[in-house]
Design a protein around this nucleic acid. Structure first.
Lengths: 271, 271
DNA sequence: AAACGTATTGCGTGATACGCAATTATTCTG
DNA sequence: CAGAATAATTGCGTATCACGCAATACGTTT
């Protein structure tokens, strides 16, 4: 009975359920993480798989409509089936639908630009936002993927998302940061530096960043937690006045109130 | 040399690339076609696969974040990874991003509610819409899946989408219609009836429906075609005044102009 | 035209996903 | 609160099928 199930979880920690499916989905999610269409060879190189393998995966994606092959360039890109899937998913997450009105309230209460992001598929994705009247130019569209270490939103997920799901992305960013340490500013690009960061964020319940990711801006983020204490989503405030990110500011108060009010909302429709 | 490759394509016409991946994606897209969370057994029954198989697929989907397991109900639902995927896909389709301003123009020119839909993953999905000032209550959200036979939008895809991709859904709706023929109104729920419908739509270049899907409303739709003459998207006008769907009306003129103007726009970013 | 890079397709085989059944968790019921 | 029934999950052996390799077809560059 003392089955050593541990040897499933060895090493790389890739294992979901079915190996080939995991590999295929990795290709798909990689496509989602890239801005434009990709050729077969690019794709194969980046995900480190033989082209024939990727090609067969793509054939299935094409068939499902999740991917499509653009123009005569032959490059592959996400397709209408992915849109369909995504909109269907959005329609189910209460905190993606409901808060649109509430987000406006928060925007009006703070006078800041408000962002709603979710964690999933190996990245933090901006799902909805309300822009403040102030002349802040955020060149940030829906679907933007935020960095884990370098944005307050990312740090929220770093601290509150299921640890297993952040590892891959974290390793990636640490590797990058090792070559360009200056970017990170207030965090040491090491495991212990990251651990300290996580502790700090958890202690405060929110994360602040002074224009690291977006120069000249101040950003605060806080988590919307589910019943397990894990982040289902994050709310982010973006402004220019440094005092709003000082501990105890009204804006942070509003933010935390909002997040508390929406935490523990179920994902699907529960009875 | 005379390889009988034909026996790949036998019968059901399921074949994309990899069998197991096709099956898995069928499960995923099925989840997208259903409004709420599903239990394992429901899911297994509906897609007609053994529960263990579906369970393993779900494990991979969970790992990729495409699905998640809700609350303590244990039911499965689409996850944040799907949102991530969908938003990434939306960000690439020119005609999903660009027209938002143009859609307003069309709305103002016609005074009607304007819908933008895409075909993919076995269904027609509403991607964007501009509501007219008139007091029309459309309880139709983003991500709504439209019927193929029973909506003008669906009929556009029926006539202009790649035939192979509509077969499955068409068969489904015909089966339903066989039990409830009255619903269809002006179309006979048979193959020949559908063929006649397709001919009619192609001849006109647009499709009209008098309140079949939405009682009391009149609806016109026309396709946005790609370079292959296949429908990449459809534009739909919704109103109450029957004369707008009469052949040669100003509204239909505006609609067709709009669709012509946006046809042949590439999907990805081409050079 | 030749040479290169890229995409696609066959083929045999070893890995692996599948079906079945046992086990565990959860819900219904008397 | 038992006890049963249903649903979810996990093991295991085997037949299947996805993989890697290499040949071919395609398109582009020099």
């Amino acid at each position: 009975m003392a089955k050593d199930k541990t040897d499933n979880e060895t090493g790389g920690g890739t294992g979901g359920g079915i190996q080939s499916l995991d590999a295929a989905l990795r290709v798909l999610m990689f496509m989602a993480s890239r801005p434009g269409p990709l050729s077969l060879s690019e794709l194969a190189r980046e995900v480190d798989m033989p082209p024939s393998k990727v090609h067969r995966y793509l054939a299935s994606f094409l068939h499902a409509g999740l991917a499509e092959q653009g123009g005569r360039s032959g490059k592959y890109d996400l397709g209408a089936g992915s849109i369909r899937l995504g909109l269907a998913a959005i329609g189910r997450h209460d905190f993606v639908n409901k808060p649109s009105a509430h987000l406006e309230e928060l925007r009006d209460a703070t006078g800041l630009t408000v962002l709603l992001s979710v964690w999933g598929g190996g990245g933090a994705t901006v799902v909805r936002w309300e822009r403040a009247a102030s002349p802040i130019v955020t060149s940030m569209g829906l679907g933007t993927t935020l960095p884990l270490l370098n944005s307050s939103t990312g740090r929220i997920f770093l601290a509150y998302a299921p640890q297993a799901t952040v590892q891959a992305r974290l390793a990636e960013e640490l590797a990058q940061a090792a070559q360009n340490p200056a970017v990170l500013g207030d965090v040491e690009p090491t495991r212990s530096g990251v651990d300290a960061l996580i502790e700090r964020v958890r202690g405060m319940g929110y994360a602040t960043v002074y224009g690291d990711y977006i120069p000249g801006l101040v950003v605060v983020a806080a988590p919307i937690l589910d019943w397990q204490g894990e982040a289902q989503a994050a709310i982010t405030l973006i402004g220019t006045n440094p005092k709003v990110v000082q501990d105890g500011s009204d804006e942070i108060g509003h933010l935390l109130d909002f997040c508390r009010a929406h935490s523990f909302a179920s994902v699907g429709s529960e009875g």
